[in-house]
Amino acid sequence: MITSKLKEALICFRAGRVTLRYPFEPSVPPEGFRGQPQLDITKCLGCGACSMACPTRCIEVTNEAEQRRMEYCFDRCSYCGECAEACPEGGITMSSEFELATDSVTDLRTVAYLDLVRCESCGEVVGTAREIDKLAQELATKMNVAADSMPWLRWCARCKRESSLATAQVLQPAEAHL
C-alpha cells in the first residue's frame, strides 16, 4: 500500500513541472496563431476592401467633405484574418498578439483620415488621393503611357460616361481605322 504511494510520488517528481509559468513568463503562441490584426496605416489606400471583407463589421469607411475616415474597431474583431487577406497593399497583417485586456475600449480603436479626390466636374467622390496616385503610376508603367495622359482617373463614373466619346477619340484617333 505505502510502496504504491511512494511509486506514485516518484513518478510525479520525475516528470518535473508540467504547467507553464505564464503570466510570469511570456507565452509564445504556436505558428499560424491569429492574434490581433496589425495595421500599417502608411500603406493604406483607403479602398475599403477590408471593410467589405470583415464579417463583424469592425472597419467603418465614411466619406467626409475633404477626407475619408477609416475607423478600425478591433474590439469587435473575431481574428478571422479576412481583412489581411483582402488588403491589396498588405497593410494589415495578423500578429500573434493576444493580450488585449484594457481598461478603455478606445485603446482597441484606430481612426485614420485619408485625403479624398472629388470629380473635377461634378464633385462626386472618386477615391482617395493615394488610390489615384498609385493607379496613375502603376498604369503608366504597365501600359507604357504617360502618367498625366489619364485625366479620367479624377472623374466619377457618370462624368466618364458622359465624356466617353471624347475620351475614346483621344485614345484612338479616328484616322487609325477610317
Binding site: 489606400l45 498604369l139 466618364k160 475620351t167
Partner: peptide, 23 residues
C-alpha cells in the same frame, strides 16, 4: 473580387461600377 474599387477608377469610360451593396 475584393471590392476595392480600383478598376472603377481605372476605367476610362465609367463602364465598371460596384454593385448596390458596394460589394
Amino acid at each position: 473580387c475584393i471590392s476595392c474599387g480600383l478598376c472603377v477608377i481605372a476605367c476610362p469610360f465609367g463602364a465598371i461600377e460596384l454593385d448596390a451593396g458596394g460589394k
